[in-house]
Every structure is written in C-alpha cells, then in structure tokens.
Amino acid sequence: MAKELVVQARGVRKAYGGTVAVDELDLEMSRGEVLALLGPNGAGKTTTVEIFEGYRRRDKGEVSVLGEDPERAGWAWRARRGIVLQDNQDVVDLTVAECVSHFARFYPAPARPADVIEQVGLAAKADAYVRSLSGGQRRRLDVALGIVGRPELVFLDEPTTGFDPEARRQFWDVVRDLTAEGTSVLLTTHYLEEAEALADRVAVVNRGRVVASGRPAELGGRQDAAAEVSWFGPDGWQRRSTDRPTALVRELEAAFGGEVPRLTVSRPSLEDVYLRLIGQSGDVGAEGALR
C-alpha cells in the first residue's frame, strides 16, 4: 500500500538572478516521517524549504504540500503546517506564556498554550520575558510557536545551529516527542549526528538537487560497503578492506591462535558517505542510483 505523501516535489527550480539555488529538485516525504535535508551551506536547503513553506515562489516544477500547491494554498492550509524559523529576534517584550497564547489565537484548533510550553520544556520560564531566554530556550519557544496550531507537518530549519552538545540533546528530545505523536517533520541541518539521531530518512542536497536519499544507516549503500579490518601484527599495523570481514576475522583468529591484537572492524560512517556524496555529486547523478 502506497503511503500518503505530505510533500511531493518534481523538477523544482529556483534562480536568483544568474545563480541557480535549486535545480531540478525531486523529493517525496511520507506522512509521519522525519526527513532530514542534509547539505553544505549554499546547497539550496533553505530555499527548498521556503518553497515548501509558501514563503517563496519557484521558477518551475511541481510542488504539493499536504495536498496543495503552497503558492495557491489558503489560510486553512497554513493552519495545517507549522514553521520554526531560523534566527528570529522578535517578541522580546512579551513573556513566553503571552507569546504562545497570542499565536494560538490565529489557529482554528490550537493546543492549550500551557501544554505546549510544558512540551517544549519551558514551564519554569512561562512568565519570563522572551528577551531573558538563553539561545536554547529561545529556540524551544520558536518550536512552541511553530506547533501551537497542532500542525500535521512541521518545518525545522537548522534548529540547533550554535547549540552546545547538551542543549542539542535536549532539543532532540523535544523533536522526538513531537514525532511520537505522528507529526511529520522536515528538518534541515548540516550536523550529521543530528540527522542520524532524528531522521527516518536523509536526503543529501548539493548544488540545488537531491544527490542521494535513504535511511541514515543505508545512505549511499553504506550497509553493503566494504568493511575495513585492522589489527596490530608482528610487522606493525595491518589494514584490509573486505566484503567478508567475518571470514577474515576467523582466519586471523586461527593465525594468531586466539585473540587478534587491537582488532577493529568498521564500515564507512555517515560522514564518510556524506563527504563522498557532496564531493562528487556531479558524477552521482539522479536520486535512486544510490538508494
């Protein structure tokens, strides 16, 4: 059975003057999925997301988000998706509670503001002025404002840029709570561990197009890639690349008559795959080739 698609884009193109930001981009996203758009700065992630959000017009291509074209969709559609912006410095003279209640007024069926504040972990700060929040708290408020309308689809654009590791982990928990309730999340990030921690599926964007997509563990054929086995032998460090690491380890065990000194078996990390993809995207070709 085909899954319902919340985002469907085909041949999307957007240029600013002579600079092509998005170039024949194809993307699909299923309901309930957490999809991470991964790519270097300037790859076209933000432009892509802004086209989906309805902020930006595309030059050509077809886009359907929650069944409607974002360029034509009305207020009811806007109430069904939530946007968490990248670095807003607004509403500083309101308290957290005032702010969330205010934005709840714009939606037909909002969540209770107090519940949303609790959900993003700001209950203790409900009566604090927004200007007094730390960077991480501020981002959680941005999430609260993005989800107070109880959207089916949430856009998170580079949500943890500039976070320390602890704040990042706390933020991930907020996102996990959200997805546990069935909300679809489209996330852009340039942190690989963030994509690995949160996403069901990753799409690597480079030079305006999707160069690979798949589950984080399988991206770029990672699961089938040759493993690297290394150990410390009588002649120093040894390293061998093999499709059958188990057999090799067994041979080594026999050769050493037991424990193999300093044995490791590794496969390419997401980072290895990612760097390969954005380095040689010109040769990689269409999506699917690497699925």
Binding site: E53, Y55, L85, N88, D90, V91, F106, P108, L145, G149
Partner: peptide
C-alpha cells in the same frame, strides 16, 4: 519588525 523576523513569522501563520 521586518528585520527581526516578526513579519516573516506572522506571514507564516494563518493570521
């Protein structure tokens, strides 16, 4: 408000 994102945020809601 255009620069600090107020307008962009509001434009993204059903307001």
């Amino acid at each position: 408000e255009r620069e600090n994102g107020t307008l962009k945020r509001l434009a993204g809601t059903p307001m």
